[in-house]
Amino acid sequence: MRFELISCEVLFREMCDSVARSQHQINVRFLSKGLHDLGGSGMRRQLQQHIDDSPDCDAILLGYALCGNGLHGLEARRTPLVMPRAHDCIALLMGSRDAHAAYFESNPGTYFRSTGWLERGKTLQQLSSGAQMGSESLPALIERYGEDNGRYLYEEFTRYRQHYQQLTYIETGLEPNRSFEEQARTEAGERGWRFSKTTGSLGLFRQLVNGDWPEADFLIVPPGSRAVASYDHQVIRCEGDTP
């Protein structure tokens, strides 16, 4: 079969590895992690555009989770859409939303890193409407807003760090060496957080590109329907017919 994979660049290595091993023919498009900065509806609009621009194929695969409602409202036009049921990419990297939920529960205040987050995602902003919050660095804020206001904004933008106590590196087994883990360990030290490492899984990536889509873990949106957030364990569901 022929698939079109549209994925967040944060999952670059996991997707490339899985695509290379798939028996199917897959076109791949990686989109900027900056899509998340646009907020749910802004992200959805851009994703929809990419979906609508896709060539004919058997299914369009989305290398995303619900991502702050960035998938909420996406429509399948001529081709089915397939997406994993998960709230965010941490669940994808951990192999299931249950694994993520269990980790979330037993390790409150944890910040996550993976190869993609380390090499591509470090500057992701906390607020979606931060289109003008280009940089969180103190000198940049002072230059732009003056000494007093710059310092105030820096405090506001970095205050969330006080709520975190731990940085967990998710190791998927694709790492070429220990450099990613070391980067994560260094970052934890710089921020004064405990460092931890957990073993991730490539299972959901493999299933996505292999066409192995059990209903419990994947949503298939048939042409004419759309994906909407379900706010329950299913995470996302199909809704109605679209014109």
């Binding site: 607020l127 409407s129 919050m133 807003y145 206001n149 105030y152 904004l153």
Partner: peptide, 14 residues
């Protein structure tokens, strides 16, 4: 109107 963003809001509120 997207003339102001989160930083400007924070500063005005302050």
């Amino acid at each position: 109107c997207e003339e102001y963003f989160v930083p400007e809001l924070l500063l005005s509120a302050r």
